[in-house]
Write a protein that binds this DNA or RNA. Structure first.
Length: 355
DNA sequence: GCTATCGGACCTTCAAGGAC
DNA sequence: TCCTTGAAGGTCCGATAGCG
């Protein structure tokens, strides 16, 4: 909880002007940054991101030499140290086209964290156990051995032809004047490790050739964004839902367009999933740049909660915890009831029933 | 407001199956 | 033998309830 990564998931507020105010597309393509390269900014002075009223980055930005998908922004602010996010290569509900940040896990959570379903870390005792004063019970669980001999059906081998979008072929305006294409990025799982300095904020510029919408949401006018005279694909600056504490900004037509706060303190518009959808569809499918639809608030998600004693917990059985019951029996009596101890909670009563 | 609880999405690991 | 697939088993996000 409190020792989880800082919660900045509150409602987007205007009092958090970070990332710093800056032009979304400060220079013509190729002038000062390579296409599709993220620029990382140092973190704001405080965790609440409230101290950058002047909009000045706290430190010099730097660039990372890899090529994300055009227009892609690193969606999370300041991942916890050593717990950074990568982009998920696998889809799934809520992750569109691999743009969702990939959760980073420790190889083995301690038994306390595992039972509390909380983030652990590599250190022993882990940070959470230290916080709760039970470092002595912070031990690795025993990983269950995978079953062998399970027969599996015939595999449906996927086609060898790569279906990944080729960024190198991306031609924003279809003209020969197209900027040099960014090198095609390696597959996500082979993406070179590029940890920015801890807490740095990545900032992705829109893809080369992208034209920010002009007035009334119409395409910009500088240059000819689309050689065939068609309106350019309105690739929003925000292909992914803005991370908590970040600021989506919208053009008059509701498209998310840039970071800088609305002028004159104009009210921040709320996220409009439909807008993203419309943006995507009207642009005629921007070739692998589908806009992730912002999921509706999952307020309807209800859980049948167990009683205080958790007697109806149907949660997965913590067999690993059962294999290491020792710390459980020692811990809670120490007065540390804050941590759901193995044996005191779900796992305990499940121990017998499972096997 | 803070913290514990826990459902379920997400992630890692690795055995089985298939290609070469 | 190596690569790919797919699922088991694990982590932990985030919603929610309870408590002070």
């Amino acid at each position: 909880m409190s020792n989880d990564q800082p919660k900045n998931s509150g409602p987007v507020s205007q009092e958090h002007p970070y990332p710093p105010t800056m032009a979304p597309y400060p220079q013509p393509y190729g002038a000062s940054y390579p296409p599709g390269y993220p620029v990382y900014y140092p973190p704001p002075p405080d965790a609440n991101h409230t101290d950058t009223a002047n909009g000045a980055p706290p430190g010099p930005p730097y660039m990372i030499p890899f090529a994300p998908a055009p227009g892609m922004m690193y969606p999370y602010a300041s991942p916890p140290a050593g717990q950074g996010y990568q982009y998920s290569q696998q889809g799934g509900p809520g992750s569109a086209n691999g743009l969702r940040p990939k959760r980073k896990q420790v190889k083995m959570a301690c038994t306390n964290c595992a039972n509390a379903c909380k983030r652990c870390d590599e250190a022993r005792p882990c940070e959470r156990c230290i916080k709760y004063g039970i470092p002595d019970t912070c031990v690795d669980g025993v990983r269950k051995e995978r079953q062998k001999g399970i027969k599996r059906g015939p595999y449906k081998r996927k086609g060898k032809t790569s279906t990944e979008p080729s960024y190198g072929e991306w031609q924003p305006n279809g003209s020969s004047q197209s900027p040099p294409a960014a090198p095609a990025p390696p597959p996500m799982h082979t993406m070179p490790h590029f940890p920015p300095p801890e807490g740095y904020y990545p900032y992705f510029y829109p893809p080369p050739g992208f034209m920010p919408p002009g007035h009334e949401g119409q395409p910009g006018t500088e240059g000819s964004p689309n050689g065939n005279g068609q309106a350019p694909a309105m690739v929003p600056y925000y292909p992914v839902p803005p991370p908590p504490g970040y600021f989506p900004h919208y053009s008059p037509n509701g498209h998310p367009v840039a970071y800088p706060p609305p002028p004159n303190g104009a009210p921040m518009q709320t996220m409009d999933p439909g807008a993203a959808n419309r943006s995507s569809s009207q642009s005629g499918e921007t070739d692998g740049q589908e806009i992730e639809e912002i999921p509706p608030p999952t307020t309807t998600k209800k859980r049948a909660r167990a009683g205080k004693n958790g007697e109806s917990k149907s949660k997965k059985v913590k067999v690993a915890a059962a294999a290491a019951p020792a710390p459980a029996s020692v811990g809670p009596s120490g007065g540390s009831d804050q941590v759901s101890e193995p044996g005191a909670s779900s796992s305990g009563e499940n121990d017998g029933g499972d096997v």
